[in-house]
Design a protein around this nucleic acid. Structure first.
Length: 681
DNA sequence: CCGCCTCGAGGTCA
DNA sequence: CTCGAGGCGG
């Protein structure tokens, strides 16, 4: 109640401001501190009053108002967002020894004792990683992790989370804050969500992680708003100005003051032994946390030391993720089938009685190869233990021999391809067995076509698995070249293919004809030639003809091509049926730009270069590619042997190190000049 | 590998 | 309403 006792109309601006601050305060206490102070009824009353005022006085409405969390309209897709700083993954540790080894590595690099180092430890939440950007204290964008380099802009969905402040708390927000964290759904929220779903007959979620990730990908933020999502911050990727925090733990406290939820379990442990104890303790506590975690994130607490340690290609040197042992379940093995891959590799796949492992139903598991079957001594009918390895791929861990039934049947590895009947060969010293049928084998043909049409190859839209199956079964398509002769009329005879779908496919094929040499090489499906190698080959040879004619020695001088890959490529182009297919593809109108490529001098041959900081005129990857094209190796860390360091804006410890070691340092302008000179030579 | 979302199209039924 | 394709993420 107001205490003025006056019946004068209160100042509207003042009241809306007060309501907003009270509501955000309540959000903060409830969703960030987990200490609700306002009853739901009071909250609702204030919220409605604010809505009412804003409706009456539209001039008072601001985008930051708590009433504006839920956007009105569905988006029509998400935009690509390039992370200013990549969202890296962490190296994993699976036991105490690996944790100690991590601490030891860090200590050696810092030339100190592991026992003296402070490590910040916190639960590794199992949700979806996102990044939020605040400018002048206001939330301006939010994105998914994506591949780490670019993610999807899901700002309007993230705005609906009440644990995501629209405005940072406090009078002096930083000019820039990019905060990373995990969006999760608690067990309680998950149950409530599924209860609601069951009541209105819609789909229930399999586990909280997928529910969280799925909710973030809704086009309509109004749906996202109904999901009990929570954001937990774990890192400040950018903070300007630097607010003087010396440790990760202090920085997390700072984030919490700014209104962001951080882990209540965070603790700083001194030395690896204490870290291991923390991991054990958290493991014990895991079930009482109320949300899913899959391990512990361990970071060097001191931020200056973090900077000194820096990064390797994919992960920071100053952190590691301890993963709890994967959950195991037992089930029965009903059957083993043998799948034939694109290269003819025969993979035994266990068909299991469906069993739920860590929230997902597992009914298949790979047995890898004959050696693995022998090692496990597994038979059909056995009771087996299943685990999801590395979070993902289901694995048969062991067999319960005590439960082996009388009639358990040994698994016979076939001598002939289950699909085409060709001999199965296993080369000396190799674990894999292969169908020798080549493209005579329909299974290999299907896989080859799938590969040919895939996104990173010719990217034929609408040519999916089922359709390829039909086309191969009917013998309409024997080689990729045949695809381009398909007619709308005949396609319509296939199930689920009407006039529209057929025309779309033919159009997609026509579009796909125009491609690049790199994609084309990749699409051929030469053994061991993936996307990266194909790109290297295209850049090196420039023309298909040059690649075809290349001898083994020339092939081996290409980046990343060794004797084995060279031999695969060489052999591929000398098979008559491959030659026929190539000719047929070109005849069908498949085309790509060809360029005579400088195979001339490589001015940076034998040198190692390092890039650091932010470049204005290109991405670091582009700079790297151009250096590599000149023959240089590009590495991530500066050493005595480094030929030069390219330092962009905000270069850090690498610059210092280079200066110490007397390594030549180039600023961006100089680098560009040199590049031009080198490339011209 | 599995689960999730979205889209376009085909099939079914009234 | 259902299916297939495509994309994302862990």
């Amino acid at each position: 109640m107001r205490q003025t006792g006056s019946d004068q109309t209160p100042d509207v601006a003042e009241e809306t401001a007060r309501l907003r601050s009270e509501i955000e305060d309540a959000n903060y206490r409830y969703y960030v501190l987990d200490e609700p102070t306002l009853s739901d009824a009071d909250y609702d009353r204030k919220f409605r009053r604010l809505q009412e005022l804003e409706a009456q006085h539209p001039e008072q409405l601001t985008a930051d108002s708590p009433t504006q969390r839920v956007g009105a309209k569905p988006a029509d897709g998400f935009e690509e967002v390039v992370h200013a700083i990549p969202m890296l993954s962490l190296d994993n540790a699976f036991n105490a020894d690996e944790i100690s080894a991590f601490a030891q590595r860090v200590a050696e690099r810092l030339e100190c004792t592991a026992d003296d180092l402070g490590f910040s430890c916190e639960p590794k939440l199992d949700g979806a990683a996102v990044s939020l950007v605040y400018e002048q204290g206001r939330l301006v964008s939010g994105a998914t992790r994506g591949d780490g380099r670019t993610g999807e802009g899901i700002t309007s969905n993230l705005r609906t989370l009440r644990s995501v402040p629209l405005v940072l708390r406090g009078d002096n927000p930083p000019a820039l804050l990019e905060v990373r964290g995990e969006v999760i759904i608690s067990h309680e929220g998950f149950e409530a969500c599924n209860k609601a779903a069951r009541e209105n007959g819609s789909k229930v979620f399999a586990n909280p992680r997928n529910a969280a990730a799925g909710s973030l990908r809704q086009l309509d933020p109004r749906i996202t708003a109904t999901r009990p999502l929570a954001f937990h911050a774990y890192q400040a990727a950018r903070l300007e100005p630097d607010m003087g925090d010396e440790t990760h733990s202090a920085l997390m406290q700072r984030l919490s003051q700014l209104g962001l939820r951080t882990s209540k379990e965070l603790a700083v442990m001194k030395g690896p032994q204490a870290v291991v104890e923390y991991c054990h303790a958290l493991g014990e506590k895991r079930d009482q946390l109320g949300y899913d975690i899959d391990g512990v994130v361990i970071k060097v607490n001191n931020l200056r030391l973090q900077r000194e340690l820096g990064f390797v290609a994919r992960a920071p040197r100053w952190a590691v993720a301890f993963k709890f042992p994967a959950q195991e379940e037992t089930t029965t093995l009903n059957e083993v089938e043998f799948q034939v891959g694109r290269t003819g590799a025969i993979t035994p796949v266990a068909r299991l009685a469906p069993v739920s492992v860590a929230g997902v139903t597992v009914s298949n598991a790979t047995l890898h190869n004959a050696d693995e079957i022998a090692r496990l001594d597994v038979r059909i009918g056995d009771t087996v233990t299943i685990r999801r390895a590395g979070d993902v791929i289901p694995q048969v861990v062991r067999v319960d021999l005590a439960k082996r039934p009388e009639n358990a049947r040994p698994i016979e590895f076939p001598d002939n391809c289950p699909v085409c009947g060709s001999d199965i060969e296993r080369l000396e010293g190799e674990a894999v067995a292969r169908c020798s049928g080549g493209l005579y084998c329909p299974a290999q043909r299907k896989e080859a076509l799938k590969h040919f049409a895939s996104r990173k190859a010719l990217d034929v839209d609408g040519l999916g698995e089922k359709l390829i199956e039909q086309l191969v079964e009917r013998d309409w398509v024997k080689t990729p070249a045949d695809l381009f002769h398909l007619k709308v009329g005949e396609l319509q005879n296939l199930p689920r293919m009407g006039e529209k779908s057929s025309a779309n496919l033919v159009n997609a094929l026509n579009t796909a004809k125009r491609t690049t040499l790199a994609r084309f090489i990749y699409a051929l499906g030469i053994r061991e030639v993936g996307e990266a190698t194909a790109a290297n080959l295209a850049a090196y040879f420039g023309t298909l003809n040059a690649l075809e004619q290349a001898d083994l020695e020339t092939l081996e001088s290409v980046n990343d091509v060794g004797p084995i890959v060279a031999a695969h490529i060489h052999t591929f182009f000398r098979q008559p049926h491959n030659q026929q297919t190539l000719v047929a593809l070109l005849d069908a109108g498949v085309s790509f730009d060809e360029a005579e490529v400088h195979q001339g001098p490589k001015p940076l041959e034998g040198q190692t270069w390092v890039l650091t900081g932010t470049l204005e005129s290109m991405t670091r990857d582009d700079g790297k590619a151009r250096l590599q094209a000149l023959g240089a190796k590009v590495s991530g860390s500066v050493s005595k042997k480094t030929a030069g360091l390219v330092a962009g804006a905000a270069a850090g410890s690498k610059l210092t190190k280079a200066e110490q070691l007397g390594v030549e340092v180039l600023d961006e302008a100089t680098f560009l000049n040199r590049l031009q000179a080198w490339e011209a030579s």
